[in-house]
Structures are given as C-alpha cells and as structure tokens.
Design a protein around this nucleic acid. Structure first.
Length: 585
RNA sequence: GCGCCCUUAGCUCAGUUGGAUAGAGCAACGGCUUUCUAAGCCGUGGGUCGAGGGUUCGAAUCCUUCAGGGCGUGCCA
C-alpha cells in the first residue's frame, strides 16, 4: 500500500515537472508513514515539507499542487493537507480488507521477503567456552542470535548459524586438570583442590563417568601429583599453581591419556551446551572447533599471509601485527616470545576462514565486554584484503541478574551461577526467550529472577499466546456446533467487516511485512516482539467487542477469516522469536 | 587518562531512522461476564525525554559540553 501511494505521488510530481510547475532537477525522497492519529488518515507523506526548501515555496502550496495532480486510485477515498504541509491519505475499506485474503493465501510465508536472496550470511553467537554449563548471562545472546538468524532467513538470506567452540587454550587445560583431580579424588586419593580450578559439581560428574569408563588406569599417587608444585593461594600464586598442575597432568598421563581426560571434559560439556540450547529452541548448522584451526595449521598460514602483506614485525622476541596502521590503539601480538600463538591469532585465522568459506557477510554476536576487540579484528580483515564492513559485530549488553533486591554474581570458575537450564525450568522457554528479546540488544537490562517467576502469568508472551489460543478455540467451537469455518464464503463477504475494531486489526496485520523487513535489516528482533503485543491487543479488543460464533453464516465466516489471518501472523511472528504458538492454554 | 555503550512515567521498557498532542506493560484507582477462554476488555491519574547550548519549518531522535551508570583498555582465553 505504501508503495502504491508513493507511486501516485511520484506520478503527480512527474506531471508537475512536465508542466513546468516544478524544476525538472528536483529530486523527491518520498517517504510514506503510518499515522499515529486516525484523524490524520491512514497514511501520511511529508514530501511537501522536504521539497519546500529546494523548490523555494510554501510547503502547503506544494502539497496543494501534488494533491491536485494525484492520479485517481480505488484504494484512496480522500486526501487532506494538514499541519505544516503533510498530505494525509484515507484508505478505502476494500483495499484494507484485501490483506486478509493475502495472509490466508500466503500462510506461513506471509511477511517473508527476498531482499537477501543470493546472499550468504553467517551468524555466530553464544560461543561460550566449553568449561561449564551455560548460565543466564548467555541466554540473551542465544535468544538474540537465534531470532536475528530467523529474521534474516525470513528476509531471504542464506543463513548459517555457527557456534565457535573454544576447545583450545589454557582455560580448557584448567578444565582438564580439574577433571583429572576430581577423578583422583574419586579413585581414593586425597587431593586439595586448587582454588583456581573449576569448582562446579558438573566437574565431579564428568570425573565420575571417566572413572567408570577408565577405571584406575589414569591414577597416580597424590604425593607424586603434588610434589614440588608452586603453592596455591592465598600463600602462593594460584596461577602458577594451576599451570604446574596442568604440566604435571600432561607429563604423568602422557599425550594420549591426557587427551582422553581433556576430551572427557570437552565432549561432555559441549554436548550439554548443545542439548541445553536445543531445549531453548536454538540449533546450529555448524559447531566450529578452534582446535581444528591449529591442526590444519591455519593460524600460521594466516600470520604468514599478514606477513606477506608486510603487516607483521618482530619485537622483543614476539611477532606483532601492525594494527595501528588500521586504526587500532596499539599493535597486537600474534605470536608470543615462547613461540605460542595468541588467542587473537586464532581469531584472525577463524575470521579469515569464515570468509574463505564463501560468506558474503559475517555477523558476530558478542557480549558487550568484547567491544574493545572489534577494531583489531576488523583491522586484521582489512590487512588481509577483506572489506571490514562485511563483518558486522552486534554487541549484546549484559543482563544484570537480581534475586529480589539482591544482585546475583556470575562466575563459571567459582561454580556460583544460575544456569540457563534452571532459568528454563523455572521461568519456561517461551517466557524467557520472549523476555530476553523484548529489549533491544544494546540496552542494559535488569533481570529479576523472582519477578520473572512470580509474574510469569503477567508476562507479555502469554498475552500473545492467549490471543492465538483463543482463535484456535473458536475453530473448535465452530466444529462442535457444525458451523465449520469456510474460507471461501468468508473471503467473498469481507465487505461486512467494517467495525472500527475490525479495521484496526486489519491495518495492524498489514504492517507485519514491513516490521519483519525492518527488523531483519536492522537486526532488531525486539520490533517483532512489540509488534506482536500490539497485534494481540487489537485482537483481544475485537474479541471482546464482537462475537464470531453466530448464526449469520456470511458474517461469521468473514469474521473468522479475519481471526484466522490474525492467528497466522501471530504464529509466524512467534516462530521467528522461537516461541510456541499453543492451540489452547 | 583514553575508547565504546547507556540515561524517556513510581518500576521495566518502546518510540516506525528528523515529523503532527512522547506511548505500552507492571504498580494504583473505578467499571465490564447467565452467551466463543476474565492469562481478557473499557476507563482514570501519572513526564523538565539526565542537564545546558547548537543545527531548522520541526529534535526524545543529529552536533557539542557537562553529570551519572556500565564495559573495555594483557606476550589471558
């Protein structure tokens, strides 16, 4: 409809140019807005105001001219010039009612578009270290990333969802050592657990399973294990202590058995994360292993590639990437003086790999604490000859957790955290996913667990689901009374839908495609959440004001067509947010 | 110190990319059901859009200064 109106205005302007009323050089940026107040019609255009300066004329005069030259249209019943020079359009009921047939015909495809056709985009999100279960802090990134992915798919993009598994590096070695020490405890050794190890119960569970599988084969005497280590905190250095333990584990177990312990932790936690996310309605096309980069020597290749371009130099025994040449504050080490590559080097290789896999655009959903990282990663891409604009980083602010007044601290290491699984069990998948995604990502968010639980009945997601379920109930009621809904009869009688509540609902439905397009374009799933609340409100108002299960067959079917169109849009929208659309509540 | 993000009703948040009288939900108050789900509907009250200055026909939105809050600023991952 907006496009139709814009065309009418463009034609009017062209006519005026031809007749010499407007300068032919005049370029009009025609923007059609939905009106806030129905007294201003249904759609409004501010083109007269934007043209006023260039045309050196009073905007109301310009509006007058445009209105006088608008081609006739069945969809428009009236135009008005209002305020400083807005042109307001009143849309005919026929044109509005047509949306119902469109929705019913396109069904689950309604609202989709092809703006991203032929474009490959990867969305990488969550990517939490596999050193422990996901906690509620990860939930927001999961909900956001999944919804953005769905939106992009709805806009026609070829979307790949990816989880980057940090299965290399020191944190994972600390986990392996933690697992092994717990294993030793279960094998009967007396071990003082390191303060810097992973304390969570899940480590015990993994160790127990390892013990069941491997028996005492991986056992060494506590005295041998602990001999000659740096002392732990508080007297000693907890970092040195844990590093010594890792080294001890590696030397006592040998490569193969150490890998066994390491993988026991990694596999168990990765699978747990996978299951957890699946239960949260989040599934990935690809789980990318950081370690695979190293195995394929991709890290060294990436460094070599930077080196060829002359962006790497040596200083104090280390290799540095000259990121300052690309806007970074300081240069960054890619290979340490001990010969080990840095995490950043892995990241360079990883991002290079993404683009080598043929992605046109890569979207990274990162926690807000990683923002300092954006510049250097983009710098690396530019240095490698890849347009940094093809990497889009979406920062998701942390949810600050409260239990009533009390702030809940989150730490994987100490084992004191609320897991995503607990949240799902306490609050429910639908409510938590909706809650996360209702706030826009860059907005700080307070998440009160008590409130989320206690108010779960007042949670807006139920309001929408309830609207959906109510319509499903109507269908059941009609079937019971042998008055089954007949779409064709209803579609032929749409002109009977002229109540204010009906018009409002139809107009709201008509907005859906542009909401989806806009939300996809801007990566803002919260727009969908807010839209659905408004749609549900329109429906509830209608439902309370008018009855659908009535004797009048024509009116009944017409109203049911409208209800079914509303139901379809709610189902489509909820699907994008990963929320179920229940048939009864 | 420097950099990024944020500040809108008592609380939690929207605000269609610069448009008309700034909106929802929760909380408060008053109404609605012998009839399709009251997890609903209708109504009332509630604002210096953090503060000042600027840009223009027009600013919550753009620029600037300041205040407050969050995060970052490793040869950690």
């Amino acid at each position: 409809m907006k496009q139709h109106i814009a065309n009418l205005i463009q034609q009017a302007i062209d006519t005026l140019k031809a007749s010499g009323d407007f300068d032919t050089e005049l370029v009009a940026n025609i923007q059609i807005d939905n009106t806030r107040d129905k007294q201003h019609g249904d759609l409004a255009c501010n083109v007269a105001l934007t043209l006023a300066k260039a045309a050196r004329r009073n905007p109301r005069d310009i509006a007058q001219l445009i209105c006088a030259h608008l081609p006739a249209s069945d969809a428009v019943t009236k135009t008005e010039i209002a305020g400083p020079g807005f042109i307001n359009f009143f849309i005919s009921q026929d044109a509005t009612q047509a949306i119902i047939g469109k929705v019913l015909e396109q069904a689950e495809k309604f609202g989709r578009n092809n703006s991203g056709a032929g474009h490959k985009v990867q969305v990488e999100f969550v990517s939490a270290n596999p050193t422990g279960p996901l906690h509620v802090g990860h939930g927001r990134g999961a909900a956001y990333g999944a919804s953005v992915s769905n939106l992009l798919a709805a806009a026609g993009y070829d979307v790949q969802r990816e989880y980057y598994v940090n299965d290399a590096g020191r944190q994972m070695n600390i986990l392996a050592a933690s697992v092994w020490l717990r294993y030793l405890q279960q094998a009967g050794e007396t071990i003082v657990f390191p303060s810097n190890g992973y304390q969570g119960d899940y480590v015990n569970d993994i160790a127990q399973q390892l013990h069941t599988q491997a028996g005492d084969r991986l056992k060494h005497a506590a005295t041998t294990v602990m001999a000659g280590l740096h002392t732990d905190a508080p007297e000693g250095d907890k970092e040195k202590h844990i590093d010594d333990l890792i080294e001890r584990a590696q030397s006592l177990l040998g490569d193969q058995d150490y890998r066994l312990v390491f993988d026991a932790g990694l596999d168990s936690i990765r699978d747990d994360i996978k299951h957890d996310l699946h239960g949260f309605g989040v599934d990935y096309e690809n789980w990318f292993s950081e370690r695979s980069l190293d195995q394929d020597d991709q890290i060294n290749r990436a460094i070599a590639k930077l080196q060829q371009q002359g962006h790497v130099y040596e200083d104090k025994g280390a290799l540095w990437f000259r990121s300052t040449a690309f806007g970074d504050d300081k240069d960054r080490v890619v290979k340490r003086d001990n010969g080990q590559t840095t995490y950043f080097a892995s990241d360079i290789a990883y991002h290079l790999n993404k683009f080598e896999r043929g992605m046109d655009t890569v979207i990274n959903v990162w926690g807000a604490d990683h923002h300092g990282y954006i510049t250097r990663v983009k710098a690396a891409l530019e240095a490698l000859g890849i347009d940094p604009a093809r990497l889009v980083v979406k920062l998701v602010q942390f949810a600050i957790l409260y239990r009533g007044e009390e702030r809940v601290q989150m730490s994987t290491r100490s084992g004191s955290f609320v897991t995503l699984r607990e949240l799902r069990e306490e609050v429910g998948k639908d409510a938590s996913r909706f809650f996360y995604v209702t706030r826009k990502a860059e907005q700080h968010m307070d998440f009160d667990l008590e409130l989320a639980k206690s108010e779960s009945k007042d949670n807006p997601v139920y309001y929408i689901q309830y609207a959906h379920a109510r319509i499903c109930t109507l269908i059941r009621k009609l079937a019971e009374k042998d008055m089954a809904w007949d779409a064709d009869i209803g579609l032929a009688q749409l002109d009977k839908l002229s109540q204010a509540a009906e018009i409002d609902l139809m107009q709201q439905i008509e907005l859906y495609p542009e909401v989806i397009a806009n939300a996809a374009k801007n990566h803002e799933p919260h727009q969908v959440a807010h839209y659905l609340k408004d749609l549900a409100a329109n429906f509830h108002t209608y439902y309370n004001a008018h009855r659908m299960v009535i004797e009048d067959m024509q009116l009944r079917n017409a109203r049911m067509c409208l209800c079914m169109a509303a139901r379809q849009v709610m189902a489509n929208g909820l699907e994008l947010l990963g929320v179920d659309a229940p048939e009864q509540m």
